[in-house]
Amino acid sequence: MSEKVVLHYFNGRGKMESIRWLLAAAGVQFEEVFLTKREEYEKLLKDGALMFQQVPLVEIDGMQLVQSKAILNYIAGKYNLYGQDLKERAMIDMYSEGIGDLMDLIIMFPFKPPENKPAHLNTIEQKAKDRFLPVFERGLANSQFLVGNQLSRADVHLLEVTLMLQELLPTILSTFPKIQAFQDKMKALPTISKFLQPGSARKPPPDEVYVKTVMGVLSHLFK
C-alpha cells in the first residue's frame, strides 16, 4: 500500500467494527485514532473531515471517507470482496443490508436503559430467528459462501453478526447447522483466524466505559 489506513472512532465496536472486520479479512493493516473527548470530535468537524457530521471516518487512498456503507463498499471493491459482476454485487448488497439491520439492533442494546434491555433482547432474538437467520441458512444450503464461489463482504459481515448474537444468546444457532458450519470454515481462514486472536484490533463487547464515552462525545444525539 502506498499509504496507511487510519480509522477515527471510539475504542469500541459500534459502526466501525464491521470496517475493522473487512479490512482484517482483506489482510490490510490499519491504525486507529480513538475519540475520547467531545473536543476531539469537534476538531474533526472544524477541519471539515466529517461530511455529514458523523463518524466513522476512514482515511484511505488520500480520501476521508464517511458513511459506513460507502466505506464498506469501497473496501470491498478495492480488495475483491464484492463479487464478480453486477448481479453478484446486488445479491451481496441485499445480504449485507439485511445483516446491517440485525447489526443495528445489537449495537443499540448496550445503550438501552436497564429496564428496557430484556424486551430489546427479546426483539433481537425474535427477529434473528424469524426474519434473518433462516435467510442465511438457505443461502448457505448449497455453497460455502453466500454469493458465488468466493469470499465476499457479505460472508465477513455474517460471521461478525452471528458471533455477536452468540455473545447475547449463546444457543441461538442451535437450529441453524449450515450457519454453524459456515462459522467454522470462516474462522479457519488465515486473515480471519488472526483477527480472532487475543491482541488483535477486534473490540470486545461494549461495556459501561464505552457507552459513557460515546454518549459524552456525541452528547447532542442523546439529549
Score class of each variant (00 low, 15 high):
residue 96 S to Q: 10
residue 72 L to E: 11
residue 44 L to F: 05
residue 44 L to V: 08
residue 72 L to M: 14
residue 83 G to Y: 03
residue 51 M to V: 09
residue 63 M to Y: 06
residue 128 A to T: 14
residue 96 S to P: 09
residue 37 K to D: 00
residue 103 M to Q: 15
residue 63 M to E: 11
residue 52 F to H: 12
residue 65 L to N: 12
residue 51 M to G: 15
residue 133 L to W: 02
residue 69 K to P: 03
residue 73 N to W: 03
residue 77 G to Q: 12
residue 67 Q to H: 15
residue 123 T to S: 11
residue 50 L to R: 06
residue 81 L to N: 00
residue 52 F to M: 10
residue 99 I to H: 08
residue 120 H to D: 08
residue 39 E to N: 04
residue 48 G to M: 01
residue 97 E to V: 02
residue 77 G to T: 02
residue 109 F to N: 11
residue 102 L to G: 05
residue 106 I to H: 07
residue 72 L to Y: 00
residue 46 K to S: 12
residue 99 I to L: 10
residue 33 V to I: 14
residue 124 I to T: 13
residue 60 I to S: 01
residue 107 I to V: 14
residue 67 Q to R: 07
residue 59 E to I: 14
residue 114 P to E: 15
residue 39 E to D: 04
residue 132 F to Y: 15
residue 29 Q to M: 11
residue 103 M to W: 09
residue 87 K to S: 11
residue 128 A to R: 00
residue 60 I to V: 15
residue 127 K to Q: 14
residue 103 M to A: 15
residue 55 V to Q: 04
residue 74 Y to P: 10
residue 29 Q to G: 10
residue 116 N to T: 08
residue 58 V to E: 03
residue 64 Q to R: 15
residue 69 K to M: 02
residue 78 K to T: 10
residue 123 T to C: 09
residue 92 I to F: 03
residue 118 P to M: 08
residue 134 P to Y: 05
residue 83 G to E: 02
residue 128 A to Q: 08
residue 72 L to V: 10
residue 131 R to H: 13
residue 119 A to F: 09
residue 90 A to Q: 07
residue 106 I to G: 09
residue 48 G to N: 08
residue 61 D to M: 07
residue 105 L to N: 12
residue 47 D to M: 05
residue 32 E to L: 12
residue 72 L to A: 06
residue 41 Y to E: 00
residue 84 Q to T: 14
residue 105 L to Q: 08
residue 131 R to C: 12
residue 50 L to V: 01
residue 125 E to R: 11
residue 59 E to G: 12
residue 133 L to V: 13
residue 110 P to C: 04
residue 106 I to W: 04
residue 134 P to F: 07
residue 98 G to H: 02
residue 43 K to A: 01
residue 72 L to C: 06
residue 86 L to F: 11
residue 127 K to M: 12
residue 61 D to I: 15
residue 36 T to K: 13
residue 97 E to C: 06
residue 102 L to C: 09
residue 60 I to W: 05
residue 83 G to K: 04
residue 87 K to C: 11
residue 57 L to C: 09
residue 59 E to Y: 05
residue 97 E to K: 10
residue 123 T to G: 08
residue 48 G to E: 04
residue 85 D to W: 07
residue 93 D to L: 02
residue 68 S to L: 02
residue 123 T to K: 15
residue 45 L to W: 00
residue 31 E to K: 11
residue 65 L to H: 06
residue 59 E to K: 15
residue 85 D to K: 04
residue 125 E to G: 13
residue 81 L to G: 06
residue 116 N to L: 09
residue 89 R to Q: 12
residue 29 Q to C: 13
residue 131 R to I: 15
residue 38 R to P: 00
residue 111 F to P: 03
residue 129 K to E: 11
residue 63 M to C: 11
residue 128 A to S: 13
residue 30 F to P: 07
residue 117 K to Q: 15
